[in-house]
Write a protein that binds this DNA or RNA. Structure first.
Ligand SMILES: [Zn+2]
Ligand SMILES: [Zn+2]
Ligand SMILES: [Zn+2]
Ligand SMILES: [Zn+2]
Lengths: 155, 155
DNA sequence: GCTAACAATGTTACAATATAACATCCCAGA
DNA sequence: TCTGGGATGTTATATTGTAACATTGTTAGC
């Protein structure tokens, strides 16, 4: 998400993918939901719900918190975005079809977020839950720290 | 934390450990901080800040949100409790000295939380962050789902 | 012991995040 | 055309968390 060549292209891809998946699953990808998804992606980093609300109100002055949260709920439920629990923020998912295995690196300095979707992590987590006789539904793995760019910059 | 023989014993152990660590580190383990730590442990599961505030107000009617949050900040900072980001709740840490490597299994049904502090997980995560040239400061791994007890119960 | 410095707590006010509840709209299918 | 259910509008409120400044308490040097 961060090192994309052309972010507008990146956004369009995400929206098209969502569109296709919604068609297949008979989900209603309404204008509102599409606009919120676009906004989440446009931000190019974790987006706060009330910031999204403010943006939305520029074109839709009567928008309310529930407007945004309901769209976000839909997008989360169907795997198009993630909630970043440690930031109370939302970020686009670049592979909705493998959405269970998304892990995040969050830079405390530049606030950028990147996915680190290592199957090894998935495997070890599965092993651990199995060992604990636990049936996992959802995994939140968020690693905060400092990204390369910020480390180099501060040297 | 969940399968302890005698939870009062369990609480006392946690408080004594905190007491000892605070002495060693020259930290002030005040009555307030001790009481909040006790309350977090007493709950035997993730505790919400405002529930703690309500309890605290029973003995200290003038307690305010900041009272609780400041104590929680101290306890988090020094490794005696964790914030469970996905629940906005707080839970006691049973090994403050290895506090970087605490991962959680959270049952959606009974709301119990258990640690699954597998060094293998730590190793894989370290490998992944290294590969991404990322310097990790803090790791949040929270796995929600269903625990054995609840699964057996519903069979 | 006095006192300056600083940490901890008290207190007030408010910011930020999120949901409940009910009304209305809209559209697909009978 | 009618109608049922999902989506959205709307109002109100719940929940979570901080900022800012006043006061108190503790400690270390004098
Ligand atoms: Zn994802
Ligand atoms: Zn950075
Ligand atoms: Zn811990
Ligand atoms: Zn359970």
């Amino acid at each position: 998400m961060i090192h994309c060549e052309d972010h507008e292209e990146c956004i369009l891809t995400a929206i098209e993918m969502a569109d296709r998946i919604c068609s297949q699953k008979q989900l209603k990808f309404t204008d509102l939901r599409k606009e919120i998804l676009r906004m989440v992606w446009e931000g190019h980093g974790p987006q706060k719900a009330y910031d999204l609300l403010n943006k939305l109100q520029q074109t839709n002055p009567s928008a309310k918190p529930a407007t945004v949260y309901r769209a976000l709920d839909f997008l989360i439920k169907n795997g198009f975005i993630h909630k970043v629990a440690s930031l109370n923020a939302f970020v686009g998912c670049s592979h909705p079809l493998r959405h269970q295995e998304c892990y995040f690196l969050i830079c405390d300095d530049c606030k950028n977020i990147s996915e680190c979707c290592d199957p090894n992590i998935t495997a070890i987590i599965q092993a651990t839950t199995k060992q604990n006789q636990f049936v996992a539904k959802n995994t939140t793995l968020e690693i905060s720290g400092h990204c390369t760019e910020c480390l180099n910059r501060s040297e």
